[in-house]
Structures are given as structure tokens and as C-alpha cells.
């Protein structure tokens, strides 16, 4: 079993479209994990059935039992997040400001405050339109993506892959350089970095690769829209070779990239030309690494 994680430091590089194409090419025997839970979009292309769902809890939120509260105000005094305003004479928790530190509950003299586990979203195990299994998640408003949710999505996917003796797990990784992306990388056999040849693209590629290096995972890179700025593409390729990152492929700027998405299809289903071929070649190359 090989776990392939696809990440890009920057948004809008085409990571999810490319990942969905690989998932399509992988057929029914692979397992897909959508760890980009802030913008979980893969389901729009792979059309899973949302068959099994499970509530997901992360972090805590304070709750005041108004019957027990004697309005002493100590909770509001110690709260550093201004999360306990007085509304109509009652101390109320503002759920968007509460960090769940539990300080108020600890010092409340009448034990009116409790910490409740926070339901932040749902995770799903579904069958996609090609018959493969996808594990994905949906976060509620203001909920933070965390290493915990990513770890859960990946764990589920791994267990299914082990049970079915799948050859590949394809992971759509989290954005940024924080805890979630660390969790998406953990345990991976190969990392695919998707970038674009722009000032911001290269800047963010370098930042996220610093993180990959720490994990000592072999990495390859796909340059999307490579012909939009050939100079930057050249600069990117030089960076790749200086860091021993495999240069997997260049994908041309092509409006079919977006049109496939508009039709709810992966690129390899929609396009019949160069774009499709470059993705098939990329996938074959990744598989054989």
C-alpha cells in the first residue's frame, strides 16, 4: 500500500482538480481521503453518496447553567477572550469568541459552568462514482480545521485500504503550513507538490517544502499553468533540482481545466487532448516511482 499526498502551499493552483483526476484514473480499487476540509471540494467531482456519516467533536465550549449562576461575574473577569458578555442581565457565552480554555469553569464558585465537547462537523465514508471509497469531512461555521480531524479522515481511509488490500491511498492535503498539513503528511510515502509559476506560487512552494523536508518524505512537483510565465517556470525547475525534488510534469494553461469542473467532471473525463494526456502521464509516473 502506498500513500500519496497532494499538497500546495497556496490556494488556486489546481490541486483539487488534479487530485480528483488521479482518483478517477486510479479506478475503483484505490481509497481517497479529502483532508482539505476547509475547502472540501473533491465531492463535487467524484460525486460520493454520503452513505455513512459521523458527528465530529473537537475542542470545548463553555456553557453556563443559568439556574446555578449567581451573577458574580468572576468568569467574565478572568476571560481573556471577551467571550462572556452580559445580555439582559445574564452572563452568556459567545460561542464565536470562546476558545474553550476552561478557565471560567474552573473558578466559578457555584459550579454553574461546564465545558462541553464541541460538535464541529461531520465526517463521511462514501462510494464515489467510479466505485472507489472516499473519506471526507465537512466543518461547521467558525470551526477550526485541526490535526485531529485530518488524522481521523486519514485513519479511516487507511483502515479501509488495509481491509481491501488497496494499492493506493490518494490524499488531498490541507492548505497552509500549520498543524493540519503536518497531519496530512504524516505517514505518507510520497508527496506531490502542485504549484504555479508566479511570484506567490514559488514563494509558497518553498515555505511548504521546508515542512515536507522535516518529514524526510520523497517529493515530486507538478507545475500547473507552466506556460503562463515561462521564466518563473524555469526558476521553479531550478529550485526543484537544487532540492532534489522530482519534476513530475508541466501542465499547460487550458480553460478546459475549469470547464471540466463546471461540468462536474474530472479533467480526464472532460478533456480529450494535451491536458488529459499530461495528467495520465503524471499519474503513471507517480505510480511507478
Amino acid at each position: 500500500m502506498k500513500e500519496i499526498v497532494i499538497i500546495s502551499g497556496k490556494g488556486g493552483t489546481g490541486k483539487t482538480s488534479i487530485t480528483a483526476s488521479f482518483a478517477y484514473l486510479g479506478g475503483k480499487d484505490i481509497v481517497v481521503a479529502d483532508c482539505d476540509v476547509d475547502a472540501a471540494d473533491m465531492h463535487l467531482l467524484l460525486k460520493p453518496d454520503f452513505k455513512i456519516s459521523e458527528d465530529f467533536y473537537s475542542g470545548e465550549l463553555a456553557k453556563i447553567d443559568q439556574d446555578k449562576c449567581n451573577s458574580c461575574g468572576m468568569c467574565a473577569d478572568v476571560c481573556r477572550f471577551d467571550a462572556i458578555p452580559v445580555i439582559n442581565g445574564q452572563y452568556i457565552i459567545d460561542p464565536l469568541s470562546c476558545e474553550g480554555c476552561g478557565y471560567c469553569a474552573r473558578i466559578c464558585p457555584t459550579e454553574a459552568i461546564t465545558n462541553e465537547s464541541l460538535n464541529v462537523g461531520k465526517s463521511y465514508t462514501s462510494t464515489t462514482k467510479v466505485g472507489s471509497i472516499i473519506v471526507h469531512a465537512k466543518l461547521g461555521i467558525g470551526a477550526d480545521n485541526s490535526g485531529k480531524l485530518v488524522a481521523k479522515v486519514k485513519n479511516e481511509a487507511k483502515q479501509i485500504a488495509e481491509k481491501n488490500s488497496s494499492d493506493y491511498i490518494i490524499v488531498d492535503g490541507s492548505p497552509g503550513i500549520g498543524c493540519p498539513v503536518v497531519s496530512s503528511l504524516s505517514g505518507a510515502n510520497f508527496v506531490v507538490l502542485v504549484t504555479e509559476p508566479s511570484v506567490a506560487g514559488l514563494h509558497d512552494l518553498k515555505r511548504v517544502y521546508e515542512l515536507v523536508k522535516k518529514f524526510k518524505i520523497k517529493a515530486g512537483c507538478i507545475i500547473n499553468k507552466y506556460d503562463i510565465n515561462t521564466e518563473k517556470s524555469k526558476e521553479t525547475i531550478e529550485y526543484l533540482s537544487s532540492e532534489n525534488i522530482i519534476h513530475i510534469s508541466n501542465i499547460p494553461y487550458d480553460e478546459n481545466f475549469t470547464k471540466a469542473m463546471v461540468n462536474g467532471k474530472t479533467i480526464v473525463e472532460h478533456d480529450q487532448g494535451n491536458l488529459k494526456n499530461s495528467l495520465i502521464e503524471s499519474w503513471e509516473k507517480i505510480k511507478n516511482l
Binding site: 473537537s58 485531529k148 481521523k152
Partner: peptide
Amino acid sequence: IEGEAHGA
């Protein structure tokens, strides 16, 4: 530890 969001 699976129950912990951060600091695992």
C-alpha cells in the same frame, strides 16, 4: 490521544 485536537 486521538481525542486531542492539538499538542499530541
